[in-house]
Design a binder for these strands. Structure first.
Length: 420
RNA sequence: GAGCUUGUAGCUCAGUUGGUUAGAGCGCCAGGUUGUGGCCCUGGAGGCCGUGGGUUCAAAUCCCAUCAGGCUCCCCA
């Protein structure tokens, strides 16, 4: 078995039966919290037009330049979605969701694809949940959005996180800031890392994100964007902070926080966990007031976040948080002989209809092997059925944990289990 | 795209300076209990030692290549 005929592609991971319960639980929590906040679920296709992602996410971003799974069929250009904000916005515009009135509060859960080098907390197919509010400019929207994100982590018990916030400005502020940044870095250009020198032309704000040792002293003294915000944008940012304070959500201002995607404006935030190693971002988001228009809709202010589910589950593991209960089944019917097997098949539905989970052996194992299987399946009770029991109409109900048995007729068994 | 590192049973790992039929624990299957689990005892199945090539009388062990995993850089979830 060391050389299976087929295996997953690089960075593609099977989620096996031992893992799925915690995924189901996580999804359930996301649905429940989203409902409390009155967000509605949206499900968009895995495949989108390449042009949508290129325009939406940004032509020069790493995602678009080197991480897309893209292919063509005839004249159509397909891409496996690398994130879900652009698709949600596409759906919003395509189906005129603004006509539903008010602001739209949407959330999603699903797989995303980026062709990066895998490592801990990074796969090529990974899963995100996220939410978007379309059509609201008010800082209250930003903060309620963050509150939804935080409430999911809090409910799970991941509380040792740091929320970093910043304002990356509106186009006007950003232009002024970029010029100031360039003026600042230009004379020092040859002392910066190679990577940062490249960023200087494309996206000077990214230099602030650099982790290169040699860049750090320059970054420390660089001008910060919050000094360049125009009045309206500064006021918006201040209100976001005030609202966070009033909700008791603690945060750290990080003037160097720059999000990776081009569409972000004004509020930017990121949730960091110390339990994740190199990939320490649990989730992040911000405003993208220009994206709807970029994708062909009416100018519509919007804010959202996306969070990585694998990373959330890694954090759970580090913190010894058990999301899901161990597997179990209410009843395991142990059969002796063919008549008993037929009896079991007929009576399983009656148990299940009474909302009692039940199973039996399919492969004709010995009683001992069936008992062992019942134990392995973590059965609460076993019912032992043989010719004696069939003749008397009384079946042996064994409490697996207490190792106690009693003879009951079938209706009594159903009643006993239903009452618990 | 780059660096480091690992690759022996389903899982976690031992395998000494290259030397006969490759080991352990757990798991799996069976027996010890003729109709009964978890503990214990006994036995069994399961590996061309990631793959391909090379060095050698002899390779899991040395060399090269390749594939895959892990970690890191980059970037992000």
């Amino acid at each position: 078995m060391t050389q299976p005929t087929f295996s997953t592609h690089l960075g593609m991971v099977d989620i096996l039966p031992d893992e799925t319960p915690k995924w189901q639980k996580l999804e359930q929590i996301i649905h429940e919290e989203a409902r409390k906040f009155n967000f509605e679920e949206i499900r968009t296709p895995i495949l989108e037009q390449t042009e949508l992602i290129a325009r939406g996410v940004g032509e020069l971003t790493d995602i678009v330049t080197k991480e897309m799974f893209a292919f063509e069929r005839g004249d159509d250009h397909y891409v496996l979605r690398p994130e879900c904000t652009a698709p949600v916005v596409r759906a919003f515009v395509e189906h005129h969701l603004d006509q539903r009135g008010g602001s739209q509060k949407l959330y999603y859960i699903g797989p995303m694809f980026r062709a990066e080098r895998p490592q801990k907390g990074r796969q090529r197919q990974f899963h995100q949940f996220g939410a978007e509010i379309l059509g609201a400019d008010d800082p209250i929207a930003d903060v309620d959005m963050i509150a939804l994100m935080m409430s999911i982590y809090n409910r799970i018990g991941i509380s040792n996180t740091t929320l970093k916030i910043n304002s990356v400005g509106d186009p006007e502020s950003r232009k002024a800031y970029k010029n100031a940044l360039k003026d600042y870095f230009r004379p020092k250009l040859d002392q910066l890392s190679d990577i940062s020198q490249k960023r200087f032309e494309n996206n000077p704000m990214r230099i602030l994100d650099s982790k290169e040792e040699e860049d750090q002293p320059f970054i420390e003294d660089a001008p910060i964007i919050t000094d360049f915000l125009n009045e309206a944008t500064a006021a918006h940012y201040t209100e976001v902070k005030n609202h966070l304070d009033s909700l008791g959500i603690s945060y750290e201002e990080d003037p160097h926080l720059v999000r990776g995607l081009d569409y972000y404006t004004r509020t930017a935030f990121e949730l960091i966990s110390p339990d994740l190693g190199a990939q320490d971002a649990l989730g992040g988001g911000g405003r993208y007031d220009l994206l709807v228009e970029e994708v062909g809709g009416q100018p519509t202010p919007a804010v959202g976040f996306a969070a990585g589910m694998e990373r959330l589950l890694i954090a759970c593991e580090e913190l010894d948080i058990e999301l899901a209960e161990p597997k179990s089944v209410d009843i395991y019917i142990v059969t002796i002989g063919d008549n008993a097997r037929k009896w079991a098949l007929k009576h399983l539905p009656k148990l299940r209809n009474a909302d009692i989970s039940a199973t039996m052996d399919y492969i004709g194992r010995s009683v001992k092997a069936q008992m062992k299987d019942a134990d392995r399946e973590n059965a609460r009770y076993s019912i032992i059925v043989g010719d004696n029991e069939l003749k008397k109409g009384k079946f042996t109900l064994r409490n697996m944990k207490e190792s106690e048995e009693q003879a009951l007729d079938f209706d009594a068994i159903i009643k006993k289990l239903s009452d618990q």
